[in-house]
Write a protein that binds this DNA or RNA. Structure first.
Lengths: 207, 207
DNA sequence: TAGATTGTTAATCGATTAACAATC
DNA sequence: TAGATTGTTAATCGATTAACAATC
């Protein structure tokens, strides 16, 4: 397995995983790179190149075993492991993410929800209590949290990120519209919804 | 202005826009590509290349006028125009997006919300009534809707997308975990949250 | 004018696609 | 075995960076 795989390849893995999951559920046992390429509208070359970064999962003359490839990609993506999360910001978006059961199914367990608004503290979302921000730091330490989901306005996001770094968080799933400055060993995955909407708007020009 | 600008360039425009907006709010009047590059952690070359796809916004020996460049990028992204939206799916995510006031500020106006669940129909979210799915098609026609926001499970998303295409929708902001098959002239911008979380999970490997 | 910085061309780098020998 | 399809190398394409003449 390559030491450093480009993010271009990584971006495509979840999509392969989704298609293979669907094929698996349909009872398809094997698939060739050509067949999968037609289904996904990518080149067969790209599929084979991408997969071979991680190992030879196929067999000449046969193709790929759907179940096996699905599992292997799952392992590559770390979906065979459990992750412990806290959601920071119990507003609408924080609540929406906390309510989303499919994350739980993939091993992403939300153990705590935090908000600075006293009106929201004490509320329960799917059995998880909303706690005051003051308890965040000790909660992360006590419960060995890996990932913080940041669904707060950008004005407070920078400060909270500092607290998270101090608490040795491993990764931040950032929904705030700001670039967080964190040490290199802290993973930040940004979801900037307004940027996505602007790209849509651009592509809509002249229509 | 180039006829066909790569999506790689387009992806970066909203981020430039965000930084220029912040500089503008801080009262900064002008900035050189080098200064901006240091702020954003990209190369000055890339900034100049990107901007020159759309025109010469700068001035030799001076740099760029912050206010002017901000406005120009806004125009490129179509943020000087108003857009009419419907949100389809009044679940947690649909509610979260409908409640997000910043979209409104950028000219994205949510005129209708739709759901097939009778318990949600009749509810009001920021003055917008949740209507039954049966009314979707006529609503789009009557109100000249540009963009549909799809926050429903993937099982129903494919069918609803067909209805949207029939209704001559121009763009779909798709939060369902499925690739929508639509004609070439319908824009689809995907937000696949679970894929984002999987990328985070991958980058977390071994930590 | 001299200095600064753009706009733009040329060079480099990396990612994608094509081709094919290896092999099931 | 013959046919099919992978794994992998080589060729191509596109995106990024460097360089510098143009010009404010």
């Amino acid at each position: 397995m390559d030491i450093n795989i480009s993010q271009a390849v990584i971006r495509r893995l979840p999509r392969y995983y989704r298609y293979l999951g669907e094929l698996k559920d349909e009872g398809v046992l094997r698939i060739s790179s050509r067949e999968l390429s037609e289904l996904m509208h990518v080149t067969a070359s790209q599929i084979r190149q991408d997969l071979n970064h991680f190992g030879g999962f196929g067999q000449q003359g046969y193709g790929y075993n759907v179940r096996n490839l699905y599992d292997e990609i799952g392992k590559i993506l770390g979906l065979d492991k459990n992750h412990k999360l806290v959601v920071i910001g119990a507003g609408h978006l924080g609540q929406a993410l906390s309510n989303y059961v499919n994350f739980e199914r993939r091993g992403f367990h939300i153990l705590g929800i935090f908000d600075k608004n006293p009106d929201l503290v004490g509320m329960k979302i799917r059995d998880v209590l909303v706690s005051p921000m003051e308890e965040l730091e000790s909660f992360i330490a006590t419960n060995d949290i890996d990932i913080a989901v940041l669904t707060i306005p950008k004005t407070s996001a920078v400060d909270v990120a500092k607290t998270l770094v101090k608490s040795n968080i491993k990764a931040i799933w950032n929904f705030a519209h700001v670039d967080l400055a964190v040490p290199d060993d802290v993973i930040v995955e940004n979801v900037h919804l307004s940027e996505s909407l602007m790209r849509l708007s651009y592509n809509l020009r002249g229509k």
